[in-house]
Write a protein that binds this DNA or RNA. Structure first.
Lengths: 328, 328
DNA sequence: TTGTACGCGTTATCAT
DNA sequence: ATGATAACGCGTACAA
């Protein structure tokens, strides 16, 4: 199991005849080193392509300088964007990003946490955790996005309730005759909130809504669920779908059925991920401010890692209705 | 800089009164431990939530059990899909995945390599490297996707030349009156290959082609480049775009200009990423077999890491024309 | 069946 | 301005 050893400080020491402590001082600029000695060391480093072993620091109980990122998958473009932002913030701050996928599976998520703990990550950013209780046990600074809230940890989320409300009110305003909600998987915190916002706004003006349940976060390509196939869509329907990728799939399905979007049926998505601009018709949707979400997650994590007290344990970011061409 | 120490084997040893080596034997199942002793250890582990520090192993010159993944960004869905596959392979094999973004910037890429070397990763998978020479210097087993080929390393790529050829022949077959190629950024290995395939096929039957240069891999939303805006599109054009996301953007732009796709103008993309199924009209494209690419990369890396000789230093996977609705 | 002792790459402290 | 040494968490060879 032993691998070919890479160059170590000891090797540099042997080559230069300079002691290890001096090498360390030179590399970390943590003490006086005579210029000529420095040059010798520099030469040996270049010759051997020596790079300090970052893992040693975590052995000493220093920061390991890596951060874990736990997300469901990249098949949902929202998490691609989220992870691009987070990954870049981590990278720019000089940390390493250890990436883990849960596939929205609880056991996989638990294994991810153990892996990250084994790496002694300095912190974790976790999106849509199914197992938030693990945080307090593991004792790693953690910020989560859209997790079922655990009082002990910092959670970022968006105002899903208002999102549902905005969606209903807009569908009503443009004169939809029937209100349909394609509801997300039950395990997501956001599912009920979006539903409730939609439902309460309908009830407030004495309207009924129709519900279609969806079990999957994303259905790639033409993989339309049976629940949707079983539903009888009608001209005049206004449909609020729990995320963009499913909304676009459904538009595609409606067009195959012979409906026109938005002339016959209006569709609103959720996320405002980049695909909402690419689809034709362009998708009307509820924006989640990904970049701000990512920044909030990362900056809060930095504060937690520096043992600062983060004031709010739950922070709710606003959503916004983005009107495009899938509604009329 | 010292952090709150996490539980160590020493702590478990103090709690149980059992020596560190016995704890080690128990945890790694590497020697005899009396059942009753094992139970004591187990209890202490559960009480303290102890997880072994994985970083120590790399200090000893053992495998660090992490693998670096270097990609440009996730704003191009092809790399999202690629990374999801790679990330899952890595995770299932019990490794940690350290994710790095280059943003197609050479200096950023160099910093990534140094970071990964600092973490003593056991191997690296690198997509669209701009700096392949670094591999041999760093001495880390590496497999690259679509890198400018360096004889010393293993490179996976697709038959871009044939992709360009397939695109031309299809556009010709469906009766395009003019042949337009939206060419990718010059720094990508694939750019010339795709162009050459398209160009040579045109020349073979004495046809001319028009070229539009694009500087960016992806242009999100409505960010249409000046080169495209300056071009005078015409009814009867057949357009071959160097990737899906730009193809979809261009379709959207053409529709804004009043053209119908595919009735007036046909468009072919490249990648067959999931967005090609979501767009309306669905995108005709040249498929890169992402899953196979990812698997090839990962399995070749595993072999390299086990010091096996990988026979081919460059492996070319086939592409395929996927006919959908953006061509007629 | 268990313990002792050494080594790994690095940093901090103390001495020179 | 530089060197010697202890310490970190863990695996292994060897002793008991």
């Amino acid at each position: 199991m032993k691998e070919k050893k890479q160059t170590s400080m000891r090797d540099i020491s042997k080559i230069t005849g300079v002691s290890i402590s001096t090498i360390s001082r030179y590399i970390n600029s943590s003490g006086y080193v005579k210029p000529s000695t420095g040059e010798k060391i520099e030469a040996a480093i270049n010759k051997t392509n020596y790079v300090p072993n970052r893992n040693v620091k975590s052995v000493f109980g220093y920061k390991s300088h890596n951060i874990g990122l736990i997300v469901p998958a990249f098949t949902n473009p929202f998490f691609s964007e989220f992870s691009t932002y987070i990954g870049n913030y981590i990278q720019e701050a000089g940390y390493g990003c250890i990436l883990c996928f849960t596939g929205d599976d609880k056991n996989t998520e638990i294994r991810n946490w153990e892996l990250l703990k084994g790496y002694r990550v300095d912190g974790v950013i976790s999106a849509r955790s199914l197992y938030p209780d693990v945080w307090s046990k593991l004792g790693i600074p953690t910020v989560s996005f859209e997790s079922n809230h655990n009082e002990q940890e910092v959670n970022i989320c968006v105002d899903n309730y208002n999102g549902g409300s905005l969606a209903f009110n807009y569908l009503n305003k443009i004169g939809s005759k029937r209100f349909v909600h394609v509801r997300g998987p039950e395990s997501f915190k956001a599912t009920n909130e979006r539903f409730n916002g939609f439902y309460d706004s309908a009830k407030a003006i004495d309207k009924n809504i129709e519900i279609i349940k969806s079990e999957k976060d994303y259905s790639l390509g033409t993989d339309i669920s049976d629940n949707i196939k079983a539903f009888k869509f009608k001209k005049g329907d206004g449909i609020f779908v729990f995320n963009d990728i499913n909304a676009i799939n459904i538009i595609s399905y409606l067009i195959d059925l012979g409906f026109r979007v938005p002339e016959d049926i209006s569709v609103i998505g959720f996320d405002n991920s980049y695909i909402s601009e690419l689809s034709i018709p362009k998708l009307t949707t509820i924006e989640q401010p990904v970049k701000e979400i990512a920044l909030k997650c990362f900056s809060n994590l930095l504060e937690l890692m520096e043992h600062k007290v983060v004031v709010k344990s739950e922070e709710v970011l606003p959503v916004k209705l983005i009107i495009r061409d899938s509604t009329r």
